[in-house]
Computed example of a mutant assay.
Amino acid sequence: MPQRLFIDVHIVQTVPPANVNRDDQGNPKEAVYGGARRSRVSSQAWKRATRKHFDTTVPEPDRATRTRRLTSELAKRIVRDTKLERDKADRLAGALLTRLNLSQGKKASDTAYLLFYGNAQLDTVAALVSGQAHDLAALDDEKLAAELKDLPVADAFSTGHPVGVALFGRMVADIPKLNVDAAVQMAHALSTHETQLEFDYFTAVDDKTEKEETGAGMIGTIAFNSATLYRYATVGFAQLADNLGGDTEAALDALDRFVDSFARSVPTGYQNSFAHRTRPSLVAVVVREDQPVNLVTAFEEPVVSEAGIQAASVRSLAHEYAAARSAWGDVPVHAAATHTFASGKPGATETLEALTEAFGTSVPFDELRSGLRACVSAVLEAQG
């Protein structure tokens, strides 16, 4: 198994007017940092966006699902595999999952909380009864429970984790055996600068309005802001490999997919109203053997717009990384970056010099990922 090895991912990304992640009032989430109000996107929102992105790159059985409707999903698989009537499959699925002693929700078929599982794991549970489903369905409740009591239902959820569960973990308070320690820690995204909440006043016209009628068919407001965000996540490679059964190649694949999906994903709140999807202006990866390091302190003093915010933000990040490395005597195993800054723009020379000193010459994103994989593979080989 690999020893201590952490992969930090630092991203600077500008989002136009948007309401990416709403609070309980329907407004963009915010936080006060460094004495200034900042735009915020919760880690939960970006975790889900990341997970949904990399789910699009793999077959359905290799994906993960988070739901309260576990009984219903299992029943669907039993019907698919055995052609059993749905009501009988629901009863059989409920009896199977009783083996887990999951707390029940308000609806009899729901669990009390969202359960995160691999689709292949639920297929395995369904397969436990597929050969005798019709016979089991004919038994009364007492005999059915006796027949199912020794089936390894919990074991099916304890092995063969998909990437989503291996990365983000699973917490089941009343069944510790099902817990999976997360390999990823993800910070809330924060704007590098102070932001102001704004409101879009809109009217919608009824296409069937009569000539004598005036006014709008609907009037309302949508809150929004715009921000250059600092995003940070770290992957504990040893934990990731352990969650994947010690398979380091699978862990390397999972790391690569995570970096790709974390960089490319964006939460979808109000996306039809704002079309806010952008790409990062900077993605930097740092491989460390000591501990993860969040560089949000680069923005404790809010960036002030001179000729935009983006370039000043990445310079601040690069300077913070270089200063922390010097002050603490850090010697990271590897650092690399992909960014969109080029010569010819105002302040470009200063920006490029800061980024190159901190992370080296910019490389295409595909090369960033392949270089990261090669570095981690070399470290694992050296660790033996």
Rank of each mutant, 00 (worst) to 15 (best):
I222C: 02
V283C: 09
R264M: 11
H193P: 04
F237G: 00
D81W: 06
V205L: 14
S343G: 15
A311L: 05
A156W: 06
S343D: 15
E210P: 03
E289K: 14
A133M: 04
D253G: 05
D24Q: 11
V15I: 15
G34T: 03
F237T: 03
K107A: 12
P16Q: 01
V287S: 04
D55E: 15
T351F: 12
F365Y: 15
T228C: 14
L96T: 12
L167F: 12
F341I: 14
Q291T: 12
S130V: 12
T234P: 00
G94A: 07
D87R: 12
V129T: 14
L5R: 10
R68D: 00
R68E: 08
T214G: 12
G35W: 12
V41A: 02
A241K: 08
L368V: 07
E73C: 06
L5Q: 05
P61C: 11
F54K: 03
L372S: 01
G329E: 06
G26K: 04
T124S: 14
L97F: 10
R315T: 10
G220V: 08
A145L: 09
Y232V: 10
H319L: 11
V20P: 03
T361L: 10
T221S: 09
H319S: 12
P17D: 00
A108M: 04
E73G: 07
Q3P: 03
T248I: 13
F237I: 02
H161A: 08
A216G: 03
K76R: 14
A187S: 15
D81T: 05
D330F: 15
G344H: 08
P17H: 01
G131E: 12
R48W: 04
D290A: 13
V172N: 01
